[in-house]
Design a protein around this nucleic acid. Sequence first.
DNA 1: TAGATTGTTAATCGATTAACAATC
DNA 2: TAGATTGTTAATCGATTAACAATC
Lengths: 219, 219
Amino acid sequence: MASKRVVSIRVIRRISVYYEALLKLDLPETTYVSSKRLEEMTGLSSNQVRQDFFTLGLTIGKQKKGYMVKKLMRELKRILSIDRGAKIVVIGAGRIGQSFSAYRLFQGRNIQVEAMFDINPDLVGTTIGKPGAEIPILSIDELEPFLKGHPEVEIALLAVPEEVAQELLDRLVSYGIKGVVNYAPRILRLPREAKGVQLINESICSAIYKMVYHRNHPQ
Amino acid sequence: MASKRVVSIRVIRRISVYYEALLKLDLPETTYVSSKRLEEMTGLSSNQVRQDFFTLGLTIGKQKKGYMVKKLMRELKRILSIDRGAKIVVIGAGRIGQSFSAYRLFQGRNIQVEAMFDINPDLVGTTIGKPGAEIPILSIDELEPFLKGHPEVEIALLAVPEEVAQELLDRLVSYGIKGVVNYAPRILRLPREAKGVQLINESICSAIYKMVYHRNHPQ
DNA sequence: TAGATTGTTAATCGATTAACAATC
DNA sequence: TAGATTGTTAATCGATTAACAATC
């Protein structure tokens, strides 16, 4: 009946998939989609679709018809907080960090990169991104004052060399950040004093290692 | 007793963590490390450590002492197939694709990017990477002949715009590739005729979306 | 010996899949 | 009405955590 306490990253990911599928197919707003139809569109089973909706307390389906596209998309938008969005910063303006500046999906999600931070003097002071939507690259030294001056920025993406990743996480926490996604290929740990801070270690290369493992250890 | 059929990506990832920790600490080869010590070093519980070793059929521990560093590292290397390594290609020489060319960890793993492929005429024909280890950027048109000529290349990293990701996956499969890691923000599906091909959809931004969700839906 | 640590089993937790009564 | 589809519960699967006998 009620929605679960914790919504896992997998559920959020699948909700994104449903939403993107509906967006891309550009169905008439008055159409109904069944969980079976969503299965065809996304490859995720109709059972999974209904279970996900149930988990999120989303009970807007009509028997024999399915879910009204208009209503469903409104609900999915609410769950993904697309209207509200988020303002974030990116630490590290290397290739991975820069790739976030160009993420088109961020626009559709109302996710705004407010600034990037780096130590490279060639980068500091420049901007990145299309005209009209430039993102400034600031010095790491400006990180603390920036975050103090922009309390609405609660999330940081960490895309720095692994040697300095833990130190920067500690600093971000001490500056009051509330969520960090770490892209450095190292598992970081939150400092003890971190209270209510979330950390996700996103390991870009684990998938590669698993591939290699399975190629080299067949069956 | 015997090792499990399928080794999950999580186990592989943790094995990497143990290995990197031992490497970085540069312990004398004759030292013994206990699972408790590994817990302190990695933050992964000693129970998890022993369970992982058990899962992989790795029973080289000595009661009251632990695991001999030398022996343990040899075993972890074998599991991670660091000696054997792998030759891979990267499809898409944009920022994400390029970031793989610089991955230092690939060296430690003996993972070699043989070539990158793109359609951008400004990139095609150039190389990327340090002198002595340049990686050529070839045209996508050369993908098929390249793979036919290099049957040892069985794994591809897909880092292209999402619009063309599925098409390129299909092509890779038809050219005989055996494993694909997809970094485009879209869940791809293997074509029906794909037999024995592995696909991992690595979603770089799911973690961000989960962060945003939890910030906007507190408690 | 007593204490520490393993290998392994069992318990728990969480996520996915299957099933089905309700009902439009 | 009969058939389709939901919401929800139950079964299954897999991964993590806990426990502990064996033993060095």
